[in-house]
């Protein structure tokens, strides 16, 4: 397998705090690679740098072999990278299907099209409806996004990530704030889409990570201390110490 995403020696500081510290990581085509780490380990800073919202102080990010370290966010999306948000980031005033259709629209290049009504566009609507079906939200299509539950919002995030048909999906804590049952539903959903997509999963929920990941990297204070299969990580002493704390 070839590396789809390669991060080499990434550094990012905020004042005196090193949020990312000489971070090196590679994600291979087709795998579901999870990054775990305790609170404040720099997971969200990492994902912000990967999608271009924050600029690293030093280091490089290679995507499909090309250097994208300084490429602006909307261009990264064009290159085939998509992200979901830890804190739900949807367009609340728009309907559920409008949110998804917008993501489908983004896939089809520029949208400087002023004449034909977008909501009457069968191509957009049908594709959006397919995606909603895949995440089990087809019955809520016409509802206003703000009216849906948190768990449903998380599913919408996945549908949007799928809509982009991106080569790499960055999923930022898709289980955040979900109850036990909702988490199970999300694990099932992700199990259904893995293999068809390369996924970098940033996640807090250990059970979910161990159930889903092909490989796991452990992030502590901005640095990757170990990478391996779930079994390897489970048995890694440094990880147990750093991640599970002294009581482990």
């Amino acid at each position: 397998m070839a590396a789809l995403l390669e991060i080499k020696g990434l550094n990012k500081s905020f004042g005196g705090i090193k949020a990312t510290d000489d971070l090196t990581l590679s994600v291979e085509t087709g795998e579901l690679h999870a990054v775990i780490g305790p609170n404040g380990a720099g997971k969200t800073t990492l994902i912000s740098q990967l999608c271009g919202l924050q600029r690293p102080d030093s280091g490089t990010v290679l995507f499909k072999g090309g250097d994208i370290t300084l490429v602006p966010p909307h261009r990264r999306a064009r290159l085939g990278m998509t992200r979901s948000y830890q804190i739900t980031s949807l367009i609340m005033e728009m309907s559920v299907i409008d949110n998804i259709a917008l993501a489908v629209q983004a896939r089809e290049g520029h949208s400087f099209r002023f004449v034909a009504p977008a909501r009457g566009d069968r191509q957009l609507r049908d594709r959006a409806m397919d995606l909603l079906r895949r995440v089990g939200l087809e019955e809520k299509a016409e509802m206003r996004t703000v009216a849906l539950s948190h768990g449903e919002h998380r599913h919408m995030e996945i549908a949007i990530a799928l809509a982009s048909e991106a080569d790499l999906m960055l999923l930022d804590e898709p289980m955040a704030g979900l109850g036990a049952e909702e988490t199970r539903a999300m694990v099932d959903l992700l199990n259904g889409i893995k293999r068809q997509h390369t996924i970098l999963l940033i996640e807090h929920d250990m059970d979910a990570v161990f159930a889903l990941a092909d490989r796991i990297s452990v992030l502590v204070y901005g640095h990757i201390i170990a990478t391996g299969t779930p079994e390897e990580i489970r048995g890694n002493e440094a990880v147990q110490h750093a991640y599970l704390g002294e009581e482990a």
């Binding site: 609340m92 259709a101 099209r113 002023f114």
Partner: peptide
């Protein structure tokens, strides 16, 4: 109501 308008309104929302 066009594709352009969808993007415009989306950018306003988020």
């Amino acid at each position: 109501n066009s594709r352009f308008g969808m993007v415009l309104q989306a950018a306003k929302g988020n």
